[in-house]
Amino acid sequence: MTTTSAISLAEVYRFLAHAMQYPERSWFGEDFLSLFCTFLDELGWDADRAALAFPKQLSSKDIELLQVDYTRLFINSVPHVLAPPYGSFYLAGGGILYGASAEKTRNFYREHGFDLALASDIPDSLTNELQFLSFLRELGEENVELEFTRTHFRPWFCKFSTIVQREANTPYYKAVVKMIDFFTMEDE
């Protein structure tokens, strides 16, 4: 049990990026789920919480269901990959990975002192953009964070999110994407 009182948005961004990794036993276990469910409880998303219905001890089958859903949603699938988690797929001139908008995203990173850890990585992946937001929040660059969210992240994420909400077979991915939506929305 923790005694945390205030929640850091930077950590939430990182947590959400983490939640979108390929599900494996090494991290997708009791501790992670406990935290994830606590988020849902605190958000008051009872229906999403109930839909998860994970047993106390996750079986290989439980993990495999998530892996299959992750693969079909985000990697490769028959009939086809449904929601590649990369910005340029959804933006103008899109339908492609590492399109022109991805280059702009990388330029944005660089203009603010960041870059990809690996040259072969794709700048506008969902996890990279969430991690970047976490860094901005840690640095107190809230205006830059807002600009990035408005101009780079939300324009594609909303399209992505709609597809995942419609196509995911597992409640987990619907809930994660809903959570990302919630935490990347501008405060009123």
Partner: peptide, 27 residues
């Protein structure tokens, strides 16, 4: 949410869950 929510019910602190993750974006 950030001001009022508590994750105290979780079995592990938020920071610990993501501690070992390698970021794709770095300084």
């Amino acid at each position: 949410f950030l001001q009022t929510a508590s994750l105290a019910a979780a079995s592990i602190p938020l920071s610990k869950v993501t501690a070992g993750a390698q970021p794709g974006v770095v300084k």
